[in-house]
Amino acid sequence: MNIFRFAGDMTHLISILVLLLKIYATKSCSGISLKTQELYALVFLTRYLDLFTDFISVYNTVMKLVFIASSLAIVWCMRMHGLVKRSYDKELDTFRHYLLVAGCFALAVLVNEKFTFQEIFWAFSIYLEAVAILPQLVLLQRSGNVDNLTGQYIFFLGAYRALYLLNWIYRYFTEVRFSRWIACVSGIVQTGLYADFFYYYFLSWKNNAKLQLPA
């Protein structure tokens, strides 16, 4: 474990806590894409198949359980919880995310570290996470200005993978045979997708204005 990866995990945890806070405090999920939340739940469920077979550390197991439980709780909340469900922007959240699932699975079958069930699903989860934010960014663009908590949620979610990029650079130089190029290339794409959001987020912070993505 290095500081970059720990900071990345904490940033990821913060993004989830901010989203839970927004939904709980405002009893609303307006501006949040259910499709992105469903994709993230799928990412965690397919990435942590080794939850019960490979014990890495208490930290690793606990964090995996937190990520799986929170992502499922958010999807459940947005689908089932009466009050929250009514605030969902159903007509704006129309990204065909099943295409992302199909494309990432096809890619995972072709490009993986080893042609085994677990490795294919791991590669699938890595590719899917890279594009999982797309429905959320599209919804953001359509819904004009967003509330602060939603903006912060997306900011921390994007920042965590940027920290992971630093972690992979650090591990590449400090560990003899560290190579996780699938995660690394995917992480670069994932962080790149946030580029314009980061730009407008920075502008809104600098001008102390509401976050607005150009339509």
Partner: peptide, 10 residues
Amino acid sequence: DANDVAKDEL
């Protein structure tokens, strides 16, 4: 080889 190492990252 390196790939056999369990995935230690989240």
